[in-house]
Design a protein around this nucleic acid. Structure first.
Lengths: 107, 107
DNA sequence: AAATTAAGCAACTAAAAAGTTGCATATACA
DNA sequence: TGTATATGCAACTTTTTAGTTGCTTAATTT
């Protein structure tokens, strides 16, 4: 399909997926597929698809217990996004002069 | 259509758009539509559409001069993404305990 | 054992996004 | 003035993504 970072960006580009991810991050315990779907105005299968997308990029991992599948967030996976942003942060405060610093930091 | 942050995420989720944006960031001067299109294996119109998408979210702004349209990157717009990430960074090192700190910092 | 609950899979529809072709317009240049 | 260049606009095709319906399987509960 496409490279990792593109998949990751696409995963978080969808508002429903960001919501699911957020719900999992702030949840005190893992949530089952049904528990998650109940929070959305969408069929369980729709939600399942989104969870699968999140799982594929590593933002979510699943813990099967009996017939239930408990979902957990793995926010560390967002480090890739931070890494991508890192380069451009150099240009925020002054448009000139920071690129050199950035390159120096990589020598 | 959809909210600002979703548009922003979608804009950078496309690899061609990330490439265009990157080319503009590292360019020593503004680049015309034609100059940009020449760097891609795609029609000029295709590239123009991508530039329009980037422009709509503020990642690119245009400077018209005669018949030419010079494109510039505006990386500051990525601050929104950093802001979104900020919350989740709390969970990178230890899964528990950091949420409290985050909330405290907002009191 | 029968009924209920949790979930997966596959096929389908609908809508959005990516990219193209063709044509029009305005600027610049010889 | 005539030609080449830079670009926009609109319609179209193709591909991808989002979401649904219907059915099946397997674990629980009564």
């Amino acid at each position: 399909m496409q490279d990792k970072i593109t998949k990751l960006f696409k995963a978080i580009a969808d508002p429903t997926r960001r919501d699911i991810f957020h719900a999992l991050v702030i949840a005190s315990s893992a949530l089952s597929i049904t528990q998650i779907s109940n929070q959305f105005d969408m069929t369980r299968q729709g939600v399942t698809k989104h969870i699968k997308t999140l799982e594929e990029v590593g933002l979510v991992y699943i813990d099967s217990q009996g017939r239930e599948r408990f979902c957990n967030a793995n926010p560390k996976e967002l480090k890739e996004v931070t890494k991508w942003l890192k380069f451009y942060e150099q240009f925020w405060d002054d448009k000139l002069g920071r690129l050199g610093d950035y390159l120096d930091s990589r020598v």
